[in-house]
Amino acid sequence: MDWRAQDHEPIRTYPLLGGDDLKFGIVVSEGPYTHQASDTAYNFVTAALAAGHEVPRVFFYHDGVNVGTRLSIPPQDERNIQQQWSALAAEHGTDLVICIAAAQRRGLLDQNEADRQGKDASNIAEGFRISGLGQLIEMGIETDRLMTFGD
């Protein structure tokens, strides 16, 4: 197995912040609805942004990749977890990254990957993108605190 075959995006630098504001990196490692993890993560991120901190990236790993499907249809009286995250990304510019290795196992594809793999559909929601595990390590390097929400 060639573990290094996955491509890495170039290191992105984040704007420097003043004062006591911190950069939080967030990992979500369980899927929506089964576990509370993605809800707690969302509530934490919302509170962190409200307090003036920055959340440059959220990385979705393990079954957490399923948060990024645009095909989920929860009952109307329940929160729509995917839409909450998409709206957050639109408002705050948070980079929502779905791990490609975990996503391929679980059937999460963007259009590029669907074309490349000869699949007949893609299912990534607005504001999410698929990239390599290097984005997780880079987030750990570039942020002040790393928080994992999982099981």
Binding site: F24, N43, F44, T46, A47, A48, A51, H53, R145
Partner: peptide
């Protein structure tokens, strides 16, 4: 603590270890 207090705890400690 509420969620704001959770964020405050994360900010005022040097690191976070999430026991999963």
């Amino acid at each position: 603590v509420d969620y704001a207090g959770f964020v405050e705890l994360a900010a005022t400690h040097d690191r976070t270890q999430n026991w999963l």
